[in-house]
Design a protein around this nucleic acid. Structure first.
Lengths: 319, 319
DNA sequence: CCGCTAGGTGCTCATTTGAGCGCTATCCTG
DNA sequence: CAGGATAGCGCTCAAATGAGCACCTAGCGG
């Protein structure tokens, strides 16, 4: 784009520029035709338009009356290098409202992008529950549970319910299994994973085409996993460099998996496997998740990020 | 411009459209390059942009922090078929302020468009006095008085002073003459016009390249001429169809000169002569001038109209 | 099952547009 | 007054773009 240094001087030039700009941008007339209309050369028309742009006379804005902050979404996407970002425009004080809004956008996204030949993997979080509650219709595709069940005292629905409900809306088969996300030891984990029901779901992991997960920070209250383990185990992982938790996986600041005694005891998808999924939709809210989101992105575990204004701005500020 | 019927459906399409729109309109990247970047065909990029435009996601606005309402100016210009319109953005309750603002814009216009090889004709009005008082510098061109002097009890400066002052600012010669605009009878008018001083100015009328005049309505208080004659004379002209007064000329609704006993007694430029001037800047304010402005425009006596919001809107509504 | 429509896709070819050039007028400045 | 910087102009040629078309697919009703 040619940016002229000189700007528009007087009222005559200004209204001429406005006239040209209107014909060009609003009425969609070609520069050549405008030139003919006004008895100017097409070069003069082009130059006048350039000046009108650079002087701010013509303003081009992205305006969207909806629940998404488009400008922020686009900026975040290019800064993070994430293929798609959806920054939800929502009040941020009330976590429940924020979750509901993230969930609504996630539901809208699934309804839009999931097709019947997809294989969809679901992690578990309260945001995903919010999503499910507003999911109305979806292409009939199979739905797979990505990790074991982790119950929270404050939530009475499990990942199994989530998978079944989403599959029901979709009208496709549900691959779920009754197993906890965290088991007492590595041997138990291994034997559980060989159970037919569990193995059947895990076998699907390699063929996933879309997955939807929630990003947790390795901070108490910022991850369902952290909230479910002892403080010793938490601290041990923290010292080992864990900053981020996604679908039970533990990741360091660079997004690499950290192997801790705990990670042997988790039943769920592995990072290498998830990374191969062509479309990974990750949800994150709360400014404390800044580092965790950055880690998940670095680890290649996010192709679409759904978040909200203040976290988006924090991510942009962080670079 | 291709206007797609279908609009943008979900959040994914919306942010994609926003991303493309940003790259194209803000960053100035070509559609072809955007297509390559995002792995799309250039046709899809173009169609997405079309939809973004027609769905209102991309908004293009003319914004100008100044004293001119550009959108209205452009619209008025194309509706009236007047080459250039300047609609002044000014408070409209106080006539003195309105005059000052019209005058300022007129001064800015003269400073911009007058060149040293121009020959500038000046009519007389309080708006033009306001213009002169803010005129700072102008190309050195000769300035000609277009009509005789008409003094108002509330104004102590004549058209002669106006012409001399403007010529002084310009640094060019002034062609003025001491003669009233309205004389007692036609014979007096003829003999006055043969006086060397008057004739010298009138001789210039044929070579005028620019003129600036004020539009009066044939209504008491809306024209300096009306205010200077008896009510009988006023009524006579009104019945003859006069609706508009420009530089002493009397015009009907179609902009044709109306010959009345009064018009024989006026010393000033004739319509046929003024019409030949390549650039005629006309000033008008006050909603009562609606019909008068329309008449002057129809009569081909306006190439640039300087007015204000409410009169502009009235003109648009009328036509 | 077929035929229909509607929406989406990418192609070709003609038109529109931009980049960069050289020309000119103007305005300083020595 | 010559020389030099600067802005504005329109040209050429190559690149970008739009219009219209043919194709494909999904959904729908006979």
């Amino acid at each position: 784009m040619a940016t002229s240094r000189t700007s528009i001087s007087g009222p005559a030039q200004t209204v001429l520029a406005a006239k040209i700009a209107r014909r060009y941008y609003i009425d969609g007339v070609s520069k050549r035709d405008i030139a003919e209309e006004l008895g100017l050369s097409r070069f003069k028309v082009a130059r006048t338009l350039d000046r009108a742009r650079s002087s701010g006379l013509v303003r081009i804005e992205l305006h969207y009356d909806g629940d998404i902050d488009l400008a922020l979404s686009v900026e975040l996407s290019s800064t993070l290098g994430v293929r798609r970002c959806l920054v939800v425009d929502s009040p941020e004080e009330d976590e429940a409202i924020l979750r509901a809004n993230l969930g609504r956008v996630a539901a809208g996204l699934l309804e839009e992008i999931v097709e019947s030949d997809d294989l969809l993997g679901l992690s578990w979080s309260r945001t995903l529950l919010a999503m499910r509650s507003v999911l109305r219709e979806m292409a009939p595709c199979p739905v797979v549970q990505l990790s074991g069940v982790l119950s929270r005292p404050d939530v009475d629905e499990s990942s199994i319910d989530l998978v079944r409900d989403v599959a029901k809306v979709a009208g496709g088969p549900a691959y779920y299994f009754y197993a906890p996300m965290i088991v007492p030891d590595a041997d138990t984990a291994r034997s559980l994973m060989m159970q037919p029901e569990v193995a059947r779901a895990i076998a699907k992991f390699d063929e996933l085409t879309k997955a939807i997960v929630s990003i947790g920070a390795w901070v108490p209250g910022q991850s369902t996993v952290v909230d479910a383990i002892s403080s010793d185990q938490y601290e041990e992982a923290r010292l080992a460099g864990v900053v981020c938790e996604v679908a039970g996986m533990q990741l360091d600041a660079d997004g690499n998996q950290v192997h801790t005694p705990l990670s042997e005891r988790v039943i769920g998808i592995e990072p290498e496997c998830l990374r191969r999924v062509p479309e990974i939709v990750a949800l994150a809210y709360g400014d404390e998740k800044l580092g965790a989101v950055a880690a998940a992105v670095k680890g290649g575990l996010v192709t679409t990020l759904i978040t909200h204004g203040s976290l988006a701005r924090a991510l942009l500020a962080a670079g």
